[in-house]
Design a protein around this nucleic acid. Structure first.
Lengths: 217, 217
DNA sequence: CTTGAAATGTGACAACTTGTCAGCTATGAT
DNA sequence: ATCATAGCTGACAAGTTGTCACATTTCAAG
C-alpha cells in the first residue's frame, strides 16, 4: 500500500509515477524491472520514491490491484448483461480481453494485458493471489443469479465462484499469450460445460467392474 | 535446466549445491534469495555456479520441478490405492501433505513445503505453472479410472484433470499455510463434490442419488 | 509578518547484487 | 610428451537497493 503521502500528492504527479511504472513493468518482468528506471522516467528522486512506497513489490501490487479491480468491474458488467449467468459472463470476458489484445495501446486494459504478458514467467500468477473466495463472493455475489446454479448449502455460491475464477483466470491469459488461438476458447467453453453438468459418472451409465480396461489410454 | 556439466558432477557435489539452495529458498523469497549465499554455503566459486545454471531462476525452477515431480508421484500412488478415483486421491494427497507439515524436517517433502511456504508471497503460484493439462494427462492419465468420470469427448479427460488440479493445488497449500485448519479440508471436499455432481441447475426430475460410490470421510 | 515544529523532498552513499571473462588447471587421447 | 578440450576460478564492471543527514516547504500559533 502506498503511504498517505503518496495519496496526497497532486493527481498529476501520482499518475506520472504510475505510468512510468506501468511502462517499466510491461517491458521487463518483476525481478528485472528497475526502480531506477521508473524514477528517472517519472522525474522523481530516489528518496521520494521510498517515501511513497515501501519497495518495488509494494508498487507492483498496487498497480496490479488497480487492474484486477477493473477486471472485476468488467465481469460484473458482463454478468448483468447475461442476466446473472456466470458461465456466459466468463466467456464474454474472455472474448472482450481477447479483442483488446489486438489493440494494445488502447487504454488501461491494454496496459494491464502488457503487464500480465510480460510477467507471465515467474510472476504469472500474482493475479491468482487476488482470487480469494471471500473477496469474490463479496464482489460478484449480488450479480450472480443463483437460480441458474445447483446450490445446496450457503457456502456453495462462494465455493462455486471461487473454483470458476481460479480455473478461468489462467485460461484467460493463456489465451492472451496464444494470441487468440481458438483452441483455448474452445477449451474454456468445454470446461465450463463440464462444470455445469458435473464430471462424476451418472448412475444411468454406472459400471461396477474397475479392473477391466482402464490401463489402455 | 542445468548444463550437462552440472549433471556430470559427482552426485555428492550436486547435492551440496541443491541442499544449500533449498536452505536459502526456504528462508528468503525468490527475489531476496542470494546466489552469493548459496555458493558460499555450498563452497563453490561464483564462476562455477554460472557454468552449471543460467541464473537464479534456472536453479529455482530445477529445484521446484524436482519437488513437483515428487508430488505427482505421490498423487499417482494415491490414485492406484483408490482404484483410480481421482477425487479420493486428491483428498488423500491433501491429508498426506497436511500430516507432513507438523514434522517439517522429515525429508524431501518437508523441504518442499518450506520452500512453498516461504515463496507464498510473490512466487506463490510458480507451482501452478507446472499444471499444464497436457503434462498432467501424460503423467496421470493411465492411473485414473475413466469409468468413474462422465467423459464425452477424447479431450475431456485432460480438461477434467487440468481443472481439478488447478483448483486443488492452491487449496493444498492454502491448507499448509493455515496449518491444518479443518475448514480448508472441508472446502476441498465440498468443491470436489460440486465438481462431481455439476454446478448447473438440474431440471427437478433429474436429481438423484449422488453420494453412492464416494466414501468421503 | 515571524517563528518554529512537523511534514516532505533529496541525492550521495554503503552495502549489496549479478553475470562475465581472461587466464588457470585437470583430463585423456595420440 | 604433447596438446586440445573441457572444466574451474575470482576479480571486475555495472548495476541494484534502502537509508540517512540534511534541505526545503507548509502552516498554525504568537
Amino acid at each position: 500500500m502506498p503511504s498517505s503521502t503518496f495519496l496526497n500528492l497532486p493527481a498529476e504527479k501520482q499518475e506520472k509515477l504510475l505510468e512510468a511504472a506501468t511502462r517499466e513493468f510491461s517491458h521487463r518482468p518483476f525481478n528485472e524491472a528497475s526502480i531506477n528506471q521508473i524514477i528517472k522516467e517519472a522525474g522523481i528522486p530516489r528518496g521520494s520514491f521510498y517515501m511513497y512506497f515501501q519497495d518495488k513489490e509494494d508498487l507492483f501490487r498496487y498497480l496490479l490491484k488497480g487492474y484486477v479491480d477493473q477486471l472485476f468491474m468488467l465481469l460484473e458488467e458482463f454478468l448483468l448483461r447475461a442476466q446473472g449467468d456466470i458461465f456466459q459472463a466468463l466467456l464474454d470476458l474472455y472474448d472482450f480481453v481477447q479483442a483488446k489484445t489486438d489493440q494494445l495501446d488502447l487504454g488501461e486494459i491494454g496496459a494491464m494485458i502488457s503487464i500480465i504478458r510480460c510477467n507471465s514467467g515467474m510472476q504469472k500468477n500474482s493475479l491468482l493471489e487476488m482470487l480469494d473466495p471471500e473477496v469474490i463472493l463479496r464482489r460478484l455475489g449480488d450479480a450472480v443469479n443463483p437460480d441458474l446454479l445447483d446450490l445446496r448449502q450457503d457456502r456453495d455460491l462462494g465455493d462455486v465462484l471461487g473454483a470458476l475464477l481460479v480455473v478461468a483466470a489462467p485460461m484467460i491469459y493463456t489465451g492472451l499469450q496464444a494470441g487468440g488461438d481458438p483452441a483455448t476458447r474452445d477449451r474454456l467453453k468445454n470446461i465450463l460445460d463440464i462444470f455445469k453438468r458435473g464430471m462424476g459418472k451418472k448412475p444411468a451409465a454406472q459400471i461396477e467392474n474397475k479392473e477391466t480396461t482402464y490401463h489402455g489410454n
